[in-house]
Design a protein around this nucleic acid. Structure first.
Ligand code: SF4
Ligand code: SF4
Lengths: 156, 156
DNA sequence: AAAAATCGGACCTGGCTGGTCCTCTTTCTG
DNA sequence: CAGAAAGAGGACCAGCCAGGTCCGATTTTT
């Protein structure tokens, strides 16, 4: 299924909604607007705050707000904040020194890492501003071109 | 993490390895070559067979072989066979009539579906032949272009 | 002082993933 | 024909983690 977790999805929803606002809002308000259960929304927002994507103000009249302009926050950041670095396969996760035993004699590994890179690049290119606008903004298109591929490789 | 399951990964490894061979091989042989534990490899190959990606011959001297040319099998097919249709979010899975309650008033849904489509297209474009060759074949490149995006949308 | 919020956890539970094993059936081979 | 080799088709289990709830402490406003 290649699915992102539901919590992450909520994170994107919450963040995108925040992108349409200016000032900080309380969890209750945000939860109501997005139809996400309050406790869950709170958990997600806490994680986003820990990731530095949103800023929180405590106390009465406190709440959450984006820490940067909507166009400057990518959904890749949201995903990373909620569920760690993007890694399609186990071996593409550089943080944990792996669990995949073979990795040495695995022929497909290199290609997976390139796929992973492509996905990551794509998600990094999509901003909250893009997501906030219905049917708006940039869309990923994928082209398959050996020339481009090699160019990309050489440039790294 | 956005990760594919380990079983699926093994499926890709096994299928890619099969792509480098011509005749059918037994599970034992394939497991040894790829360093995948035999019982697990058997399970994976059974799933691939059910998905029609590999053909099996029973009895002594039996085994598994690809059911088509390596260039004609995409890793998207492998993933689909192992873990169902590609669905980045819950609402992009058309088979199950959803679990995501809101979906109605969810502003980001449309964009997710486009992302999903892009990922799917990308994975469909990568063949086993590509994966089998180390550092070989086509690579996905991503371009962000509103014009292309709209063109793609209109064409659907 | 009281109310409104977030912070930082702990906590639980169900489902799923990874992995094993066993029994049947089919086919080849001697 | 008999036995060995190999896949088909499940059942089965342990561990993990996602999803979700809740509570006490802290901070700020009123
Ligand atoms: S090394 Fe190979 S088998 Fe291991 S996670 Fe990477 S692609 Fe999968
Ligand atoms: S409808 Fe919205 S909240 Fe539900 S799965 Fe799709 S993107 Fe996520």
């Amino acid at each position: 299924m290649l699915r992102i977790s539901k919590l992450t999805d909520y994170g994107v929803v919450l963040a995108s909604h925040l992108a349409t606002l200016d000032g900080p809002r309380s969890v209750r308000e945000l939860a109501e607007d997005t139809a996400v259960p309050q406790p869950t929304a709170a958990k997600v927002l806490k994680a986003l705050a820990k990731g530095g994507l949103v800023t929180s103000t405590r106390g009465a009249r406190g709440g959450y707000a984006l820490s940067a302009a909507p166009a400057d926050i990518s959904i890749a950041q949201v995903i990373t904040a909620l569920e760690g670095p993007i890694a399609v396969t186990e071996c593409t996760d550089e943080t944990t020194d792996d669990g995949c035993s073979h990795e040495e004699h695995c022929g497909v590994r290199g290609n997976w890492q390139r796929i992973n890179g492509a996905v990551q690049t794509a998600l990094e290119a999509i901003s909250l501003a893009d997501m906030a606008h219905r049917a708006g903004g940039a869309l990923i298109t994928l082209s398959l071109s050996a020339a481009d591929a090699n160019a990309r490789l050489r440039s790294h």
